[in-house]
Simulated assay, not measured.
Amino acid sequence: MKYKTCVTIAEKTPKRLKVATKKALKKSDYVELRFDFLKPEKVPEALKLVKSDLKKSVCTLRPKSEGGKFSGTEKERISILKLIAEYSPFLLDVEFNSLKKNKLLTNYLKITKTPILVSWHDFKKTPNFSFLNKIFKKMRKFSKNIKIVTNAKYAEDSALVLSLYGIASRTNLIAFSMGDFGKMSRILCLYLGSPYTYVSLGKPIAPGQFSLDEIKSISG
């Protein structure tokens, strides 16, 4: 099986972001550009530097409340998300909670026809299937591209998250679990229909994340 990968790039300067992006795309199908690791005022410069690679980029500006690093205000974050949208990336990752709370942002993304990846994370646990099912159905109203990630404390947690693929027809669902018990779900999700799996260039950015080289060795 040919694994499709998305390398998470989390650099603190625009130039380092560009270098890492070029390096990753030599071996990976996509990259996830974690713009929240940059200072807010550096994002415009970074966008210009990676402009030619944005058609293969999932752009993320994760707030601290959602496990990210963005240090500015929510108003600033929304403004930068709109700026990123103007560059027409492959996907713009926007949190489900952000879309629920900000109708102006949601409408803007609809009007501009920005392809969004609506995401939801639980960094502490894995809720029951009934809860996950409800979240999935609500997220589907915003986009066919959906990302649901939980923290697996037991092996059964991963199976619970992966069972979402049974109801994921007509969507591009990326669902897996973080942590040691969730590690294999990052590979199994590909067999169940995930368009790609997130990997790192070296040190894991998220708990349980495989490196690009590890995934390539598994896929042969």
Rank of each mutant, 00 (worst) to 15 (best):
Val149Lys: 02
Ala152Asp: 03
Lys100Pro: 01
Lys125Tyr: 10
Lys141Met: 10
Asn97Ser: 12
Phe136His: 12
Val94Ala: 09
Glu95Pro: 12
Ser143Ile: 07
Asn151Met: 02
Leu99His: 09
Val94Lys: 04
Leu104Val: 14
Asn145Ile: 09
Lys153Tyr: 07
Ile148Arg: 11
Asn133Gly: 01
Lys124Ala: 10
Leu117Glu: 10
Phe123Cys: 00
Phe129Asn: 05
Val149Met: 03
Ile135Trp: 02
Pro115Ala: 13
Leu109Ile: 06
Glu95Trp: 00
Thr106Cys: 13
Asp122Trp: 04
Asp157Ala: 00
Phe136Gly: 11
Lys137His: 05
Ile111Cys: 11
Ala152Val: 01
Ser98Asp: 12
Phe96Ile: 09
Lys110Glu: 13
Leu92Lys: 06
Asn102Arg: 08
Lys144Leu: 06
Phe90Ser: 04
Met139Trp: 03
Asp122Asn: 12
Arg140Gln: 12
Ser158Thr: 14
Ala152Pro: 02
Ser158Cys: 13
Pro89Asp: 06
Phe136Leu: 14
Ser158Asp: 10
Leu160Tyr: 03
Tyr154Ser: 09
His121Ser: 03
Asp157Ser: 01
Leu117Cys: 09
Leu109Asn: 03
Lys110Asn: 14
Lys124Ser: 13
Phe129Ala: 06
Ser88Asn: 15
Pro89Phe: 09
Tyr154Lys: 09
Phe136Gln: 12
Thr112His: 12
Leu132Trp: 01
Thr150Pro: 02
Pro127Ser: 05
Pro115Trp: 14
Asn128Asp: 15
His121Arg: 05
Val149Thr: 05
Ser119Phe: 11
Leu109Met: 05
Val118Asp: 03
Val161Cys: 06
Leu92Ser: 05
Lys138Gln: 15
Ala159Met: 04
Leu92His: 06
Val149Trp: 00
Lys103Glu: 13
Lys147Arg: 08
Leu99Phe: 08
Lys110Gln: 11
Lys124Met: 10
Thr112Ile: 11
Ser98Asn: 08
Leu92Asn: 03
Leu109Ser: 07
Ala155Cys: 06
Ile135Thr: 06
Thr112Cys: 08
Phe129Lys: 09
Ala159Gly: 06
Ala155Asp: 11
Ser143Leu: 09
Thr106Ser: 15
Lys141Gly: 05
Ile111Leu: 15
Asp93Thr: 00
Lys110Trp: 10
Val94Gly: 00
Leu117Trp: 07
Phe96Lys: 09
Phe136Asp: 11
Asn151Pro: 00
Leu160Thr: 14
Leu91Cys: 01
Lys100Phe: 00
Ala152Glu: 02
Tyr154Val: 04
Lys101Arg: 12
Lys100Tyr: 01
Asn133Val: 02
Leu109Tyr: 00
Lys101Leu: 07
Lys141Leu: 12
